[in-house]
Design a binder for these strands. Structure first.
Lengths: 191, 191
DNA sequence: CGCGACGTTGATTTGCCTCAACGATTGTGG
DNA sequence: CCACAATCGTTGAGGCAAATCAACGTCGCG
């Protein structure tokens, strides 16, 4: 098993060697080229993904065909679609790689089984969900109380050099402004 | 124990009579007058609240003193501050009643103890967190892809007559627009 | 009654979108 | 290895949505 997922687990829960073995047996490793899709709408594929290496985005398309990025993921992040798992309806989410990426995947049926065998993982996923919840709350709050310039700076500070790995138009999309607007904001910041 | 919390529990998990007894022993009932605070920043009070009757709002104040409503809660909703519990720092959240309210409260230390005794409640709170996560994701998506009029209609449809229980300026605040703007949108909708 | 809380309406200003054109860079096929 | 297209970021102009400031109407209540 890759050390980064182990240290991620240990950050949240205490594990026996046996628990680790169990968890390992639930994981599959996959490799995805840049610009390829991990998930597309309409499918019932029920996986969550842990990023070993690479960069991805998750987004929805609205009726007008406009995309809305809900999340980026880089190393040591989980990415996936909670909706699909919990209510069983087909996903509306797109997950696409921004860089060539290597990932660990876990199937949700397998995960349900794991929860029964080793309830400690129920805690791990509760804590993951809680963190995701908190970071979404921060995003909502940020959009309510800050202007776009502040939110862009905040975004860049959230992960080192993340703005060099993600194209500007994707960042603009995530922030909910046009690419032109972000460009003007960036040129103001340089001065 | 109040029937509404029991049926809420049963919506998510299967319970023995003994589990129910256990859970009941963790709850306290409280009553709060209109306009009073359940939680104010700086305190370490670690409770989550289940609404039996009434209406509340949770909000943050920014440096400029502007409030930003993060959540409303009515009957059969949980309200609280996950942040405070999970990282131990004092809460920055205000929770205030919009109507006179009766609530059940659960202390988080008690809850941690309960998780150890009866892991099934770990699942209950994981599912609650997941639902909260999903509804926040909807809110983010909604603010990215819809205009204010659509978001107001969506808000009103989310709970029957909720717009009659919450003052317009609070709804405007939640939607991230000025009260004047919402007023104009409402007058357009009437026609 | 008078005051405060709440909603409405008008006028001005500002942030941002959209459309459009144009550099810079990268990749690709002849 | 060059030519050309595609991708990406920048810049300008015009228009709309929404903020802000201000004034006013209405209702409920001490």
């Amino acid at each position: 098993m890759h050390p980064s997922i182990i240290s991620h687990l240990k950050q949240y829960i205490n594990l026996t060697e046996h628990d680790l073995q169990l968890f390992q047996s639930c994981l599959n490793s996959i490799s995805v080229d840049k610009g390829k899709f991990l998930l597309q709408p309409g499918t019932q594929v029920k996986h969550e993904y842990f990023v070993l290496k690479g960069c991805l985005k998750a987004y929805y398309l609205d009726e007008k065909g406009h995309s809305h990025i809900i999340q980026f993921a880089i190393e040591n992040w989980w990415i996936g679609d909670f909706d699909t798992f919990f209510n069983g309806i087909p996903s509306r989410l797109h997950i696409e790689t921004i860089e060539h990426s290597t990932l660990l995947s876990i199937n949700y049926n397998t995960l349900q089984q794991l929860f029964k065998t080793a309830p400690i993982f129920e805690r791990y996923f509760r804590l993951l969900t809680t963190n995701a919840f908190i970071s979404q709350r921060k995003r909502i709050l940020s959009s309510l109380e800050k202007d776009t310039k502040e939110r862009y700076v905040e975004f860049c500070e959230s992960y080192p050099n993340i703005e060099d790995r993600i194209p500007d138009y994707d960042i603009a999309n995530y922030l909910g402004v046009s690419a032109e607007r972000l460009s003007r904001i960036r040129s103001k910041l340089k001065r």
